[in-house]
Nucleic acid binder design. Structure first.
Ligand SMILES: [Mn+2]
Ligand SMILES: [Mn+2]
Ligand SMILES: [Zn+2]
Ligand SMILES: [Zn+2]
Lengths: 142, 142
DNA sequence: CAACAGTTTAGAATTATTATAATGTAGATT
DNA sequence: AATCTACATTATAATAATTCTAAACTGTTG
């Protein structure tokens, strides 16, 4: 998804009707500096509280999944209680803060390419992703 | 958990009463050659069909979580629909077969140590895990 | 063999997610 | 602009995974 606005164009490009719900969701998701990692509930809350936009839960689910299918969002598995989504759809690694339950993106400089020596006959590698779990370091408290 | 039997001893060691349900579950989980990756439902089915042991769903949930807390099982996140557990509680990497939805353990020889250059102040790294997704290679079909 | 704490159980409750079906609307057709 | 139609939104019901509850049961200790 683009940097700034014209979400209407962008939606149309992939064959999604630019309804006002979809445009509002784009604004919330993509008008921001950094990658956004969220649950459906986070998103519903944001829409309703910050944006004053009441969108039915079913629509939020439908739209998030439509965006996922079109490559505007990526689902990530860090917790099996609920689904997390990521506005950064490129293949990338994550730090997961076990204290705050926040996800942080890595870029190419943060982790060296992973060297995989195993190979499964008849299968090809589709993705390689690293999850680094961190927590507050209670070692250095003088 | 041990290679063969005497689960009664082992359970007692960590302060879990060796009830017949718990011992049966140990047998199903640990009397096997390789690591076992499973969902609660897989386990309930195994117990009931293969072992002819009807254990209440609530007990299976309770016991799996008790085992997890005691370090006999590890929870892994690959899919957000349901929880997966792993009898291999060591820190290890996985291949995930997107066709069969099977998990395969890696050992130290399969993937080189991951070199992490990013560091978050005040936080220490608790774990680093790699997930390699594979699928059938439809390239080489002469 | 008590007595008690911990355990199992059926079933209800909760939470996340998906399905249904009626109503609304974007965009094309006249 | 009025009409049409496919697709979208919505409230609500249904389903699925998980957790809670409270009563009955059982392993252990004395
Ligand atoms: Mn999905
Ligand atoms: Mn858990
Ligand atoms: Zn990310
Ligand atoms: Zn494993």
């Amino acid at each position: 998804m683009p940097k700034n606005c014209n979400f209407i164009e962008k939606l149309r490009e992939v064959g999604l009707r630019p309804t006002k719900q979809r445009v509002k969701m784009c604004e919330v998701l993509y008008n921001r500096e950094k990658t956004f990692h969220f649950t459906i509930n986070d998103l519903v809350k944001l829409l309703s509280e910050k944006m004053n936009q009441k969108i039915s839960l079913a629509t939020v689910y439908n739209t998030v999944h439509a965006f996922e299918k079109k490559g505007y969002l990526k689902e990530i598995s860090i917790n099996s209680d609920k689904s997390y989504f990521d506005t950064n759809t490129s293949l990338h690694h994550h730090f997961y803060d076990e204290d705050t339950h926040e996800l942080i993106d890595c870029d190419e400089n943060d982790i060296d390419p992973v060297n995989i020596k195993k190979n499964i006959t008849g299968k090809k590698i589709n993705s390689v992703e690293v999850l680094v779990k961190v927590a507050s370091d209670n070692q250095n408290q003088k």
